[in-house]
């Protein structure tokens, strides 16, 4: 019953390999999203359903969208996405979807393997706010620092604009 796990892992490796070999940043992001989906499926098989959902929502949903925003703003010499560049990522995604459906049909009780005990989200939440509450607060501080830092860096300063104008005059 290791086969679905191995197939998802191979998809993750192949998609990651495509990420580092792409010239175009948008195509690389497309492959990275497929790789994150594949990893989420393997986590699902390991009985970590909560974290698999977080992987899709936070990584593929939020962080990748940030990357896409920046790549679009920079305009990294990307020609319009052709249909051809969608074929392989969507094929890999379709294999992942078929795998999840197959395993669901095999085991109506849940997605994880028989000997693996699924860890419930409740347990994770209790640990997060119980013994790990200090770590949670430090993570909150880190996120606040990241927010302030990103705002400070991305803000348009008045002296920057004057510099640009002066350089234009020269």
């Amino acid at each position: 019953m290791n086969t679905p796990f191995v197939v998802a892992g191979v998809i993750a490796i192949a998609a990651t390999l495509m990420v580092i070999m792409q010239r175009n940043a948008v195509h690389a992001l497309l492959y990275l999203i497929v790789s994150l989906f594949a990893l989420a499926v393997t986590m699902l098989f390991l009985g970590a359903a909560f974290v698999a959902a977080l992987e899709i929502i936070v990584y593929a949903g939020a962080i990748m969208v940030l990357f896409i925003f920046v790549v679009m703003m920079i305009g990294a010499d990307s020609p319009a996405l052709r249909l051809r560049s969608w074929i392989l990522p969507s094929l890999l995604g379709a294999v992942l979807l078929g795998e999840v459906v197959y395993v669901l049909l095999q085991r109506p009780g849940g997605l994880s393997f028989s000997k693996i005990i699924a860890i419930q989200p409740k347990e994770v939440g209790m640990a997060l706010l119980g013994p790990y509450v200090l770590g949670t607060e430090i993570a909150a501080f880190l996120l606040l620092a990241g927010l302030v830092g990103a705002y400070h860096l991305a803000r348009r300063r008045a002296d920057d604009n004057t510099n640009v104008i002066e350089e234009g005059r020269r």
Partner: peptide
């Protein structure tokens, strides 16, 4: 393990925000 992954997720979010900025 899942708790650590959630911490890593928060760290990755902060790092990406500052790096992209």
């Amino acid at each position: 393990g899942q708790v650590m992954f959630i911490f890593l997720l928060a760290m990755a979010g902060a790092e990406v925000a500052v790096g992209l900025a």
